[in-house]
């Protein structure tokens, strides 16, 4: 299935901003992070289609997953 992956802040360093991947149907958020060598401890926020997601959440065809380190402001 096709999944769009978006990376933010320092996750972009040495990786990419946005990229489409062809992944097997059972892929979870955690597996996407692992594939990109992003440690779970570094992950701040995971959004799937703009909604907060758990790491174990399986993705579906056409999903957009956005990965952020812990960031803040205000």
């Amino acid at each position: 299935m096709k999944i769009l992956v978006k990376l933010f802040a320092n996750f972009r360093q040495g990786r990419f901003k946005v990229q489409e991947f062809e992944l097997s149907v059972t892929t979870t958020c955690a597996e996407v992070a692992a594939m990109l060598k992003i440690a779970e401890a570094e992950l701040g926020v995971v959004l799937v289609n703009g909604r907060h997601a758990q790491l174990a959440q399986p993705l579906r065809e056409g999903d957009t997953i956005s990965l952020f380190p812990l960031v803040g402001g205000g």
Partner: peptide, 23 residues
């Protein structure tokens, strides 16, 4: 990570993209 790293690197403006993604 927010106070020690995120804020000094990107400033508060790091929020544009995360708020945009979250709608």
């Amino acid at each position: 990570p927010v106070a020690g790293e995120g804020l000094p690197t990107y400033g508060t403006n790091v929020l544009v993209n995360i708020l945009n993604e979250a709608g």
